[in-house]
Design a protein around this nucleic acid. Sequence first.
DNA 1: TCGAATGTTTGATTTTTGTCGAACAATCTG
DNA 2: CAGATTGTTCGACAAAAATCAAACATTCGA
Lengths: 104, 104
Amino acid sequence: MKEYTHPDLSDVTLSAAMQTLADPARVAILRAVIASDTGEIACNEIPLQLSKATVSHHFESLREAGLIQTRVVGTKCLSSLRREEFEARFPGLLDLVLGEKTGA
Amino acid sequence: MKEYTHPDLSDVTLSAAMQTLADPARVAILRAVIASDTGEIACNEIPLQLSKATVSHHFESLREAGLIQTRVVGTKCLSSLRREEFEARFPGLLDLVLGEKTGA
DNA sequence: TCGAATGTTTGATTTTTGTCGAACAATCTG
DNA sequence: CAGATTGTTCGACAAAAATCAAACATTCGA
């Protein structure tokens, strides 16, 4: 549908990353990505009671924070974690967030 | 001046902690606390161009996130890190934030 | 080619956050 | 006690963030 741009991790500030990860909805999205069979997930497969506009915005936030990358496949766009890159930039942060009990 | 309450770290959510640490001004306060000789610092000793009302609010945020503890000494109140407790609750998080280059 | 599926974008609204000045409260000191 | 010092609290306000519905764009499939 459109071309997505993915920032270089060196351009992502810790504050920005923290802010992005501070929202439970976005963490839920990350969990859903990980829980998927393929490691990729489409916007409409997210288990959240949010409008698709809102979900789209959250995906954009995650993209800008260097947490996910998105590719277009037909009419859908599949997002996956940029785990290694993010880990290299902010060691331990992602595991800390994902390891937490849901809802925390 | 007043009695401060400090939450049990088990009542602090990761989201709340992340949100608190996502603000550069609050991180700057934490750095100032650490850089102090005694490990304690008063509100008015913070190297920030912010009104005392704003600084007071930031201290409150840090307190509610379990990051600092504050005690009253005469007319001033001295705040110090709850480093071990916070570390036990969110391992690695504080070091991640403090290790980052200023301004990030 | 037409309709269905999938997201994005726009415009609007509501909430939350950061900020300040001014008034207030508590405590020390002279 | 009077004044100075140190913070807190109270409005107020602006900026940012989260949210939605509706309109739009793109692509797949029949």
